[in-house]
């Protein structure tokens, strides 16, 4: 029986049996792991609130030979981000980040920079006056560090530089395509306005800590959300859990006009293992 100690963020926690919980963590040293916490739902459980989603804690796990499920032995809260819990938009934004970090990494693969982006994102979403936008920007950061940085400086099919004209975002190509090449794309590629493209590039160039200063217009936001939603879906290889309809703000207003319903397939860095569910 071996012992693992690592900083971790709770991605998901679900009831198990009469009083236990099965918890999915994104850990700094061991990537995504699942563990069982015995008696976690009892009133006087030693785990307290440390197994609630989005909590950043120091985690101690026991590995049992022949079992993919770890035994959670100890948790010490580092940051509980209590402000996330006071707003629906923040809860929803945090959920998008947690689901994305889980979807773009494979079980047991440590990706420290994704861990860092997730942690920064949770903190920023909790403090943000505009958690929906903040979450979207940190979704980009998580994608970047998972190896899916969108390429926006040229057509990703014919290599023509992006200056002037109408451009489209191809989730499959992971970036912009020109109006000629978009016709070859098998799935819907939303058009991106020059203003949105400029905003996108700026967001990707900026330091993490400065991201909350960006204030795009409503039109740019809607384009941005649409592109991110499609790209995330393509990278994850599946539809992510719906979050719109819960908050007042519709994350993907353009979505209703989309008849395709087909998820584009992109070859992720982690190939076959990338679609592992959280």
């Amino acid at each position: 029986m071996s012992l693992l100690k690592t900083p971790a963020v709770v991605l998901k926690s679900r009831k198990w049996g009469d009083a236990d919980r099965i918890v999915t963590f994104f850990t700094l040293k061991h990537g995504k792991v699942r563990g069982v916490a015995r008696g976690a739902r009892r009133m006087k459980s030693r785990f307290g609130s440390s197994l609630e989603p989005f909590v950043h804690c120091d985690l101690v796990l026991f590995e049992k030979p022949g079992d993919t499920l770890y035994r959670i032995s100890q948790t010490d809260i580092r940051h509980a981000f209590p402000s996330i819990r006071t707003s629906l938009e923040a809860i929803t934004g945090a959920a998008r980040l947690a689901n994305l970090a889980g979807a773009v990494t494979a079980d047991g693969d440590a990706v420290p920079r994704v861990f860092q982006a997730l942690l920064e994102g949770l903190r920023a979403v909790g403090e943000s006056g505009d958690p929906v936008l903040t979450a979207a920007l940190y979704e980009l950061e998580i994608l970047r560090f998972a190896g899916y940085l969108p390429h926006l400086d040229r057509c990703n099919a014919c290599q023509q530089r992006t200056n002037g004209g109408t451009w489209f975002f191809s989730p499959r190509a992971g970036g912009t395509v020109c109006s000629a090449c978009v016709r070859q794309e098998p799935v819907r590629c939303p058009s991106v306005s020059p203003a949105c493209l400029a905003f996108f590039r700026q967001a990707l160039r900026m330091e993490l800590a400065l991201l909350p200063r960006l204030k795009p217009t409503a039109a740019i936001r809607n384009e941005l959300y649409d592109v991110i939603e499609l790209y995330v879906e393509c990278v994850a290889g599946r539809r992510m859990p719906r979050t719109h309809g819960v908050t007042g703000e519709e994350r993907v207003p353009g979505r209703s006009g989309w008849a395709g319903g087909k998820v584009a397939e992109k070859r992720p860095v982690y190939r076959s293992r990338a679609a592992a569910h959280v």
């Binding site: 991605l11 998901k12 989603p53 809860i91 929803t92 959920a95 998008r96 947690a98 689901n99 992510m240 859990p241 719906r242 979050t243 309809g245 819960v246």
Partner: peptide
């Protein structure tokens, strides 16, 4: 209960 993590919405 609502669960943004699992896509469980108001309906």
């Amino acid at each position: 209960a609502l669960s943004p993590l699992d896509g469980v919405g108001p309906a």
